[in-house]
C-alpha cells in the first residue's frame, strides 16, 4: 500500500496578498474581501427574515459577541486574560439602570454608562494590572463574584430584587440593529488598531515582553490601562444594552456566564485574531439557545465541548476554515 501524505499549498492570491504584490483582478479582490462581506451582509439581512424570537436571540448573540471580542482583544493582543467579563456587564448595566431610574433617557444613559462604567472598571482593576497570567485571571474572576455578593449582602441598588421598570428600546429593530452596528464598528476599529496602528504593536509588545516595553521608554501600566479601558467599554456597553433590552437590571448581570462564555467562544472559534471569538460567539449562543429544552444538560454539553477544543483541537474553527479557504490540500504519494 502506498503511503500518502497530505500536501498543502497556499493559493497564489494568498501568497501575493501576504507580501507587497498588487492584486490583479476583481476576482482576487472579491476572494480577499469575500468572508468579510458575507459576514456583514448576513448580519444586516438576517434580522429581516427570522422570527421575533430569533431576533431576540440575535440581539443577545450580539452582546455575547461583543464580550467575546473584548476578551479576545485583551487576551490575544495585550496578554491580559480577564475572566471578569461579568464585572463589566454588571457595572455597565447597573450604571445605566440607575441613571435611567433617575430619569435620564435611554439614549443618554447607555453612552454615559458605557464610558463612565469603563472608567470605573479600569480604576478598580488598576491595582491588579501588575499581576500576570493566572493571577490576573483569578483576580478578575473574583471581581464580579465579589460585586454580586456585595449587592446581595448590602441590599444597595435594589439588592437581590434589582431595579425593575427601566425604559426599553422602542422596538426590537432598533435594539437589534444597534447591536449589529456597534459590533461592526468595534470590529472594524479594533482590527485596524491592532493590525495597522503603531499602538497596536505596543499592545502586542506588552503581551510578548513587558520588560522590553519598559526598556523602550514606554509606560507599561499606561498602555495596560488603555487596553483595559477599551475592553471594558465593550463590556459596559453590553451591560447597559442588556439593561434596556430586558427593562430590568439585577444581580444576574454579574453572573458567571458573562465571564465564561467569551472564554468558550475564544477557545472554540480560535484565538489569535478578533474574528475567532466572534465566530465562536456566533456559533455558541444560538446553539445554546436551541438546546434550551435540555435544561442544565446544555451546560454539560458546553463544558465537554470546551474541554474538547482546548485539549484536542486547539487551533479552533476559524483557523481550520481559514486553512481550507486559503490552501489547496491534496494527498501525495511518498
Amino acid at each position: 500500500m502506498p503511503e500518502l501524505r497530505k500536501e498543502r499549498l497556499d493559493r497564489g492570491v494568498k501568497v501575493r496578498s501576504d507580501s507587497i504584490y498588487a492584486l490583479s483582478s476583481m476576482k482576487e479582490i472579491l476572494y480577499l474581501l469575500g468572508p468579510g462581506l458575507v459576514l456583514i451582509l448576513l448580519l444586516l439581512v438576517l434580522p429581516l427574515v427570522v422570527s421575533p424570537y430569533w431576533q431576540r436571540v440575535m440581539a443577545i448573540t450580539g452582546v455575547y459577541a461583543l464580550l467575546s471580542i473584548s476578551f479576545g482583544f485583551l487576551a490575544n493582543y495585550v496578554g491580559l486574560v480577564s475572566l471578569g467579563g461579568a464585572f463589566y456587564v454588571g457595572v455597565g448595566g447597573y450604571l445605566s439602570g440607575l441613571l435611567n431610574a433617575a430619569g435620564v433617557p435611554l439614549i443618554l444613559s447607555i453612552p454615559i454608562a458605557t464610558l463612565l462604567g469603563a472608567v470605573i472598571c479600569t480604576l478598580l482593576l488598576l491595582p491588579c494590572l501588575p499581576l500576570r497570567g493566572v493571577y490576573f485571571a483569578i483576580i478578575s474572576f473574583i471581581y464580579p463574584l465579589f460585586a454580586g455578593r456585595l449587592i446581595a449582602a448590602t441590599g444597595y441598588f435594589g439588592g437581590t430584587d434589582g431595579i425593575p421598570g427601566l425604559d426599553r428600546f422602542p422596538s426590537i429593530w432598533v435594539a437589534l440593529y444597534m447591536a449589529i452596528f456597534i459590533l461592526l464598528i468595534v470590529l472594524y476599529g479594533l482590527s485596524r488598531m491592532v493590525n495597522y496602528e503603531d499602538v497596536g504593536l505596543v499592545f502586542r509588545g506588552v503581551k510578548d515582553n513587558e520588560l522590553a516595553i519598559k526598556a523602550s521608554a514606554l509606560n507599561l501600566t499606561w498602555y495596560k490601562v488603555q487596553a483595559v479601558f477599551i475592553s471594558s467599554a465593550m463590556g459596559t456597553f453590553a451591560g447597559a444594552y442588556l439593561a434596556h433590552l430586558y427593562g430590568w437590571v439585577g444581580m444576574s448581570l454579574f453572573a458567571i456566564d458573562f465571564s465564561i462564555l467569551p472564554v468558550a467562544a475564544t477557545v472554540v472559534g480560535g484565538s489569535g485574531t478578533l474574528y475567532g471569538p466572534l465566530l465562536g460567539a456566533l456559533i455558541l449562543v444560538p446553539a445554546s439557545e436551541s438546546m434550551r429544552a435540555f435544561g442544565t444538560l446544555r451546560i454539560v454539553f458546553y463544558a465537554v465541548l470546551l474541554v474538547f477544543f482546548v485539549v484536542f483541537w486547539t487551533e479552533g474553527i476559524l483557523d481550520f476554515l481559514k486553512r481550507k479557504y486559503e490552501q489547496f490540500e491534496h494527498w501525495v504519494r511518498i
Partner: peptide, 29 residues
Amino acid sequence: LARTFQAMRPYPTLPAYKNIIPPLYSPRA
C-alpha cells in the same frame, strides 16, 4: 539611559523591523 538585556528580549511573534516600532513610538523618540 537605555539598556540591553543579556537574555535577548525580542517580541518573538513580530517581524524584526516591527520590534523597533514600539521604541520609535515612545514619547522620547
